[in-house]
């Protein structure tokens, strides 16, 4: 009997992103490797200089001239806005209470969560924070914002 034809393996690394991921595979799956390595990364098109966060592999300005590279989100950003949720969608109830937020790094902004250990009475718009890779209790990966 002939060998069973091997199916090409699907690169589904993105399943690991967040408490519940709604996307299995993307051309920026390396984002997950950066998180595993303790880093939050975006992409930058070398051709036009545009920073992309969230990262993307395609540049709508440069099309076939695109040369995309990864960069690590470093330093601090200013908290642009945030909200603490009292209710969660299906699958996120165990995380409550948690806060979602936007950090403004100047060249780009980052949407994410505020680290659960940060007391909410110490969080205000304008606060300097940094994005940090994080492993969730269920083994999934995300990133959280901590005070600078």
């Amino acid at each position: 009997m002939a060998d069973k034809k091997k199916k090409p393996e699907i690169d589904a690394r993105f399943k690991k992103f967040g408490t519940v991921s709604f996307t299995a595979t993307t051309k920026v799956n390396d984002f997950i490797d950066y998180l595993e390595d303790g880093k939050v990364a975006g992409t930058r098109c070398k051709t036009c200089g545009t920073y992309y966060f969230p990262p993307r592999s395609q540049c709508y300005k440069c099309l076939d001239k695109t040369e995309m590279e990864w960069f690590v989100v470093e330093g601090t950003g200013k908290l642009a806005t945030f909200s603490e949720l009292s209710y969660a969608p299906v699958g996120f109830g165990d995380d409550l209470p948690y806060a979602i937020a936007v950090l403004d790094y100047g060249d780009y902004k980052v949407f994410g969560r505020i680290a659960p250990k940060v007391p909410m009475d110490q969080v205000a718009v304008g606060k300097e924070m940094r994005a940090k890779a994080n492993r969730l209790p269920n083994g999934q990966l995300n990133y959280v914002f901590e005070p600078a």
Binding site: G18, T19, I100
Partner: peptide, 14 residues
């Protein structure tokens, strides 16, 4: 954005 926001547990009110 289901790829980059929903995994954080987002809802319309938030």
């Amino acid at each position: 954005d289901i790829q980059w926001e929903s995994p954080f547990g987002t809802m319309m009110p938030a």
